[in-house]
């Protein structure tokens, strides 16, 4: 692979001060997610997987270690530059959807483009295309409260895609969905990965969900316990 990895972490640690007590959420994690890869980070609650996802998504800064996003070392970036990096390179899908209430699906999807300075007509055009690609062409003007959980998560996926990111970080994307809707959302992530070549990093505690990914990274107590990619390479 000649291109830089989509995400590359070297010895990441993250320590919190929780009511005066230092909590070590990550204790030295190194991993590399290639362009177009589909990986799952799996672990029980409290394992540090959410902390890892926040770091990979540049929502947080590591206590030590390096993180390169698309080849760019993030520790040298200012908060403003990090915001731009997130906007252009990373798409987020959250367990609880995080759509703006009282705002239409179309406007929700167009929001990342607002912060990129894209004009209104262009925004609507691209948001419409993104909604159509997740099968919600008929729900453009609906508000989150008028849609099912599955539809809301698809709106969130469309929002993650509208900015054409390199990496999509999905934090328990099926956690609030029933089996059927969950399967549909997972199928959509599969397609995105195979058809568009977006690297997908799935964070979950459910082994069945993690099965969708070709690579599983098991996290426990702030360390990588098992990485199937490393195994494969080792074999």
């Amino acid at each position: 692979m000649t291109a830089a990895p989509a995400l590359e972490a070297v010895d990441l640690t993250r320590r919190y001060q929780l009511e005066g007590v230092a909590v070590e959420a990550l204790r030295g994690v190194s991993l590399s997610i290639g362009q177009g890869e589909f990986a799952a980070i799996i672990g029980p609650s409290g394992s540090g997987k959410s902390t890892l996802m926040h770091l990979l998504g540049c929502l947080d800064r590591p206590t030590s270690g390096q993180l390169r996003v698309n080849g760019v070392e993030m520790s040298h970036l200012t908060d403003t530059q990090l915001a731009e990096l997130r906007n252009k390179t990373i798409g987020f899908v959250f367990q609880s959807f995080h759509l703006l209430a009282r705002t239409t699906a179309l406007e929700n999807v167009a929001l990342p483009l607002v912060y990129r300075g894209v004009g209104k007509a262009e925004r609507r055009h691209r948001a419409r295309a993104a909604l159509e690609s997740v099968g919600l062409g008929h729900r453009m003007e609906h508000r989150p409260s008028q849609m099912s959980g599955g539809e809301q998560q698809r709106v969130a996926i469309a929002r993650a895609l509208v900015g054409r990111p390199k990496v999509l970080l999905a934090d328990e994307p099926t956690g609030n969905l029933d089996t059927r809707n969950g399967a549909e959302v997972m199928g959509m992530l599969d397609r995105l990965n195979s058809e568009r070549g977006v690297a997908v990093v799935l964070v979950t505690h459910e082994p069945e969900v993690a099965e969708h990914a070709r690579r599983q990274i098991h996290v426990r107590d702030g360390l990588i316990e098992l990485d199937t990619a490393a195994e494969g390479r080792g074999a």
Binding site: T80, A83, F92, H98, L111
Partner: peptide, 13 residues
């Protein structure tokens, strides 16, 4: 606010 920031809103936005 958290969501907007995740999607790329800067502090000044």
């Amino acid at each position: 606010i958290g969501l907007r920031k995740a999607l790329g809103a800067r502090q000044r936005d």
